[in-house]
Nucleic acid binder design. Structure first.
Lengths: 131, 131
DNA sequence: CGGAATCCATAACGATACTG
DNA sequence: CAGTATCGTTATGGATTCCG
């Protein structure tokens, strides 16, 4: 049985204006810290600032604040401030944030499943460069 | 049969070592230019350097070269050099590259479908900041 | 044509100090 | 606790020039 020449056509359309916006959104959303925060929030459903900072390895306080602010601005997380001392701030994903997590799940699994292949390709490429 | 409490659990495991590698791979692969090149190559199946540069808006020659090299190193594209003058170099996606395109399709569609929601969230957030 | 090499501006990020 | 503000460094990307 012959397979179709192109098994998957990933992107259905190509409106340049929409493309630019989509690219910008993906660029922001595909950020390293955003994805890691998305992961821990998807796992724990609600977390305080310091809890997130402990769960996301090597994130600086500055980057975490910045990332959470952007995610809040984009409607991915809600930030709840409890007027107590010491302050208590909780973060949780919105439905939009959850749906993004689901969408990214495919990429995450792809990366997991193909780690070896990528490492092998890199090793072979690097070996060829040395010659 | 009882369904699990969390409707979607995006990430099945959490091995910190694998996590770090996956994060690194995603970080590289989720790059702006990589995604755009992936898109045009998925649409055209094989392209020359200048053709890609015309199809990807605003990409500099430096970034395009760099992106293509990384993609080649990661085993996402194959680079074929024809020994003629003037030089002719063709790029096409590998199966790995195609499968990545398919995985990213979910994120791409998510971004398209939720553009409005994100813009609305941003507008509301910005309006609240001004007060 | 398809790059490589260089220079340079700026954006990104980490570390530190301070605050309600 | 959950940030904000500032500073210094590093990484990134554009523009330009040159080459087989």
């Amino acid at each position: 049985m012959k397979q179709p020449p192109v098994p998957v056509k990933p992107w259905p359309e190509s409106d340049p204006a929409v493309d630019a916006l989509v690219t910008e959104v993906i660029g922001r959303v595909a950020d390293k810290w955003t994805m890691l925060v998305l992961e821990v929030l998807a796992d724990h459903s609600e977390l305080r600032f310091t809890q997130i900072s402990r769960l996301v390895p090597d994130v600086s306080q500055k980057m975490l604040t910045q990332t959470l602010r952007q995610m809040e601005r984009d409607g991915l997380v809600v930030r709840t401030v409890f007027p107590v001392v010491p302050p208590r701030v909780e973060y949780r994903l919105t439905d939009l944030g959850l749906s993004l997590g689901a969408a990214f799940c495919g990429v995450w699994r792809w990366a997991e499943e193909n780690l070896r292949r990528i490492e092998a390709a890199r090793a072979e490429f690097d070996a060829r460069q040395k010659r």
